[in-house]
Amino acid sequence: MNQYDIIIIGAGPGGLTAGIYAGRQGTKNLIIDKDLAGGLGREVPEMENYPGFDKISGLELVEKMKEQAIKNCDLHEMENVEEIIRTDDEYRFTVKTDKDAYQSKIIILATGSSHRQLNVKGEEEFRGKGVSYCATCDGFFFAGRDIVMVGGGNSALQEALYLNNLGANVTLIHRRGEFRAQKHLQDMIKKEGIKTILNATVEEIKGDMLVESVLLKDNETNEMKEVPTNGVFISVGYMPHTKLAYQLGVTLDESGHVIIDKSQKTNIDYVYAIGDVCIGLKQWVVACGEGAVAATSAFEDIQN
């Protein structure tokens, strides 16, 4: 069975950074991801707040980070971790995947998150038929067409701007009276003349073979209104992937996120967590910082 000093589960920005730092410390390390490296970061259409780049897409930055990571550690993409078993040996953990099994002294959980759903009628029925959670994946198909973007955070406004640039006729819908996104993004929405509907929730997504409209509820008057649209893009937050954390006995907070200390340690010895699976700010640069901290702290654990 292959043995490693550190196994990092998840190859998003945090996991890749942890791999870079761990490898440069002289340890033997493995990153495993059930998908392609980058996670949800691959979907970011454009970033203007990542240090060192005026503008860069998530996919472009992922590829740069991946190239750097594989110089410093092993990377296994498209391999799903099914179980982690704690042992009393020097290699404290056995990691079982759908392809192989590995042993490790340290585990870093970088399992990330997935798109939160609206959980309304028609959402599942029209997934891939007008309902999407990824503007960079599907936006091209909606050039020149009417779409609604649901959400009020940074991601929702970034994707609304991206879709608008593709030539889609975008309407931004948010359940509150004001957006939660950065002022810069809100100013851009106004500058581009993107239509907004505030204090409204999507109650149903309707259509025949494809999406044709959304049913909106005015949260102030309870009035219902049907809005024609060819597509519904949803960006209303994320659900942390904590199956493996729960399996290991890691403590979670009320929202289901992993609780960590300033060294990224969980309540389980030699188990760390970083990125979107943890409590804290959901930002690319934060995940990278946490990856560096976790890898450095893990190295100190190995040395002791």
Results as ranks from 00 to 15, higher is better:
Met78Cys: 06
Ile197Lys: 14
Glu90Asp: 13
Asn2Leu: 12
Gly58Ser: 02
Glu178Pro: 02
Ile85Cys: 12
Ser114Val: 09
Gly128Phe: 13
Asn80Arg: 13
Gly280Ala: 07
Cys134Pro: 08
Gly289Glu: 08
Ala181Thr: 11
Ile9Asp: 01
Gly237Asp: 05
Ala287Tyr: 03
Ile56Gln: 03
Lys129Ser: 04
Glu159Phe: 11
Ala22Asn: 05
Glu254Val: 09
His184Ile: 15
Asp33Lys: 06
Lys262Phe: 09
Ile194Asn: 03
Leu75Arg: 04
Asp74Gln: 11
Val214Arg: 07
Val202Asn: 11
Gly231Met: 03
Asp276Ala: 14
Ile173Asn: 02
Glu83Pro: 05
Ile194Phe: 14
Thr196Leu: 05
Asn49Tyr: 12
Ser114His: 06
Val202Glu: 07
Lys225Glu: 05
Val202Trp: 03
Ala168Pro: 01
Ala11Gly: 14
Met239Gly: 01
Asp5His: 13
Pro51Gly: 13
Asn230Pro: 00
Asn230Gly: 03
Glu83Phe: 15
Thr196Pro: 03
Gly15Asp: 05
Ile31Thr: 09
Ala160His: 04
Glu254Met: 10
Met149Ser: 00
Met1Trp: 05
Met188Pro: 04
Tyr272Phe: 15
Gly237Pro: 00
Glu203Ile: 13
Asp269Gly: 13
Phe299Met: 10
Glu290Pro: 00
Gly52Pro: 14
Asp88Arg: 15
His174Met: 10
Thr266Pro: 10
Ala37His: 04
Lys243His: 08
Leu248Cys: 10
Gly275Gln: 02
Leu210Tyr: 03
Thr251Trp: 01
Glu124Tyr: 01
Lys64Asn: 04
Val150Gly: 01
Asn80Trp: 09
